[in-house]
Design a protein around this nucleic acid. Structure first.
Lengths: 197, 197
DNA sequence: ACTCTTTGGCTAATGGTGTTAGCTTCACGG
DNA sequence: CCGTGAAGCTAACACCATTAGCCAAAGAGT
């Protein structure tokens, strides 16, 4: 009979913790039953705060995006050019390693049409805009900018995904391999600016 | 009372078709019930041919890896250096676009310890070895080779994953963006060789 | 202070999933 | 012609998300 005092934020927070604790597959393993259990509540009660399991996953994606965005912003402030890009890449990877579940949630792409996912799209656009801002210091032509953003996102994301999934043998030397990749991207983006100038 | 005449291969083939037809989420959406339905058989009957849903997914991953490997090998034969690397990258992306569900299955990482997944590990190693073979033409020092392989895999995989997930707005210009990324990787690997020589 | 409305919890029920156990029956080998 | 193994089946169990409907707690208004 006493009330648990839940709220949408509380439920999402619990879900985010569960996802985070579940490692790279934490998002896929997320279940309303587990959330309800740790909240000390019956499963259907969650529907008073959250529309569905899919919606809860999207909310988790939102907090993940927000976290990644603020972390990335914090680490690139005051830097520019290659320096900023390196810092961004390092922080991105650090986030993925520290919170693998949440990083997987970032990967969740919002539906481009669904109106209720507008906030999600905005959050996703925010982190892409951050990459754009960092790359702005490279003085690229507008039509090359988009290629550069995509290349950088692809490189960093690909490495992090493969690392998290255990796609690389030999746990050592991963840092150097990552640095090598970032060097390639930095050099590539620099060259992209140089060609057009 | 008549017998359906199934076999492990037949079940896996049906599953692979379902995964392929299901788009990028086809692997996650794979269900024993659907396989049984298209096979014209009751769900539990599948256990006579397949250990579990997870095992079936791994078998699908195996056919996906085999397909990707033969396609990649076919397209790089007779080429070397940047030419081979470009062909490999293009084919990789083409595979992902033509068979998004199977590409997701490729992403399934085998357990490094489980003995029953040895074949899976071998298949995964085979496709990585193919990348190594292509990069062999770049004349890298041994300790730089691994960095180059990882960078190339990360770049291609990252781009393809983001593209499949709908992470890129503006469907046009994707080809040019991909070429830009590959140019960066080719230049980066070349430079890696030049520095050490 | 008493009511009335909202809201956050509950139980019950439905339809879906994977998985196990145990039975039957087909197809083949001695 | 029988026996044995494999390939189907049904029944059952344990989970899952989701919906419907009820009930009581907390707060608003007089």
């Amino acid at each position: 009979m006493p009330r648990a005092g839940l709220s949408q934020d509380a439920v999402v927070r619990i879900a985010a913790d569960l996802v985070d604790a579940g490692g790279p597959t934490g998002l896929a393993d997320l279940t309303l039953a587990k959330v309800a259990a740790t909240a000390g509540v019956a499963t259907p009660s969650l529907y008073k705060h959250v529309g569905s399991l899919a919606a809860l996953r999207r909310h988790v994606a939102l907090v993940a995006l927000a976290d990644l965005t603020t972390r990335s912003a914090a680490v690139t402030v005051g830097r520019s050019g290659p320096d900023a890009l390196r810092a961004l890449a390092r922080e991105w990877r650090a986030f993925a390693r520290q919170r693998p579940g949440l990083y997987a949630a970032v990967q969740l792409a919002p539906d481009p049409d669904a109106p209720e996912e507008a906030e999600h799209r905005a959050a996703a656009a925010r982190v892409v805009a951050l990459v754009a801002a960092v790359l702005h210091g490279f003085d690229l032509a507008d039509d090359r900018m988009i290629d550069a953003i995509r290349a950088v996102r692809a490189g960093i994301h690909g490495f992090v995904v493969l690392e998290l999934a255990g796609g690389f043998r030999l746990p050592e030397d991963l840092d150097r391999s990552f640095d090598t990749l970032i060097d390639m991207l930095v050099a590539g983006v620099l060259k992209l600016g140089g060609d057009d100038a």
